[in-house]
Amino acid sequence: MYHKTTGYRIFNVFNTCFLILLAVLCIIPLIHVLAVSLSAKSAADANLVGLWPVGFSFEAYKKTAANPLFLHSLWVSVLRTVVGTAITLLITFLAAYALSKENSVFKGRNVYSWIFVFSMIFNGGLVPFYIVIQKLGLINTFWVLVLPGAVNTFLVILMLNFFRGIPKELEEAALIDGAGHFRTLFSIFLPISMPSIATVALFSMVFHWNSWFDGLLYLNNAKDFPLATFLQTVIIQQDMSSMSVNPKEMELISQTTVKAAQIFIGSAPILIVYPFLQKYFVKGMTVGSVKG
């Protein structure tokens, strides 16, 4: 047994330590941000905070919670995530059902498949896309955050593969009993598709919560920004010219501790859904990959 040899035991100790170290490296940055956000302003400004708060204080969170611009962007993010995910789910659910049919049952399926796939492998690039958004009158509206990304071919394929795994007899029985395809989809498929619906919903939620570029590109007023765009502007660009805030407020937003608090609040929803994500995304990641 190789487990019992001295060489393997030594390797095992080193290997375990090494992997634990790597794993810790993956969350150290988040812990640091949390520590800074809970520290006193003076300690944070002097770069004294490592992985534990120095001069424990909730001040940064109080200030963040008192900033109407931050709160509003938080609301926009919640709204876009809920509305966007709902739209994506409905469209994906319907499209995946139709595409999961055999060619013999649904003539024309191949044409649709190609329309989906081609949209995945070719795109017109940023500039034409921007102009189309402009011509559709979506600039500076909430809908620019939810409509353009509503169809994601990857998610359609994910759900389609799930539907393919459902025994055909189930559907045949329903059709023989006189139910139409819509009825079959909503009363037979829907209840048993919860795992795949959860997967698609989680992917879509993460996408929406993290999206920041669309807000930056298509929204001119900082008061319409979702949280990710707000954070990008305040923390990365450090440019508050679009926000029409007075110098006092500006100083407040750009404090080290307040920045850290904002970053942490921005990542909190991901951390909260993370246990659920982990349960489902493995399926999503391996979809279509190892089948013969």
């Binding site: 790597l22 794993a23 810790v24 993956c26 969350i27 940055p29 988040l30 640091h32 941000v33 993460v206 919560w209 993290n210 999206s211 920041w212 990710a228 954070l231 990008q232 923390i235 990365i236 920045k259 970053i263 921005g266 990542s267 991901i270 951390l271 993370y274 994500l277 982990q278 995304f281």
Partner: peptide
Amino acid sequence: LVYLPHFLSWVILGGI
């Protein structure tokens, strides 16, 4: 722990 950073956006990670 190692899967986690994948789900955070580059805005968050960039800031950090």
